[in-house]
């Protein structure tokens, strides 16, 4: 899951290909991904993991880093 997300962000959302991305990098606050990028990322997650992210789930606590996203997806799986 981790690799899929890193690969997608690195290939489609980062402005420069030489940025090394880790699971703990702040995607939202550091300007790594812009707001259009977040929209794309969420659309990718919905398609890739076959689920719908409802608007009220689009919060910082769920999407700030790749590991936050993993936690969120885990919770969704269990629910």
């Amino acid at each position: 899951m981790n690799e899929i997300l890193i690969k997608y962000i690195q290939e489609h959302l980062l402005s420069s290909s030489d940025i090394e991305l880790t699971s703990e990098d702040d995607l939202l606050g550091s300007g790594l991904v812009d707001s259009m990028g977040m929209v794309k990322l969420i659309a990718f997650i919905e398609q890739e993991f076959n689920l719908t992210v409802p608007p009220q789930d689009m919060v910082i606590e769920n999407f700030m880093t790749i590991s936050y996203i993993e936690n969120y997806l885990e919770q969704r799986k269990q629910a």
């Binding site: 939202l28 991904v33 009220q56 789930d57 689009m58 910082i60 700030m64």
Partner: peptide, 14 residues
């Protein structure tokens, strides 16, 4: 408003 809030609509409304 933080950078993160500008990208996450549900957080912004909170």
């Amino acid at each position: 408003v933080s950078e993160a809030h500008t990208k996450m609509p549900a957080s912004l409304s909170q």
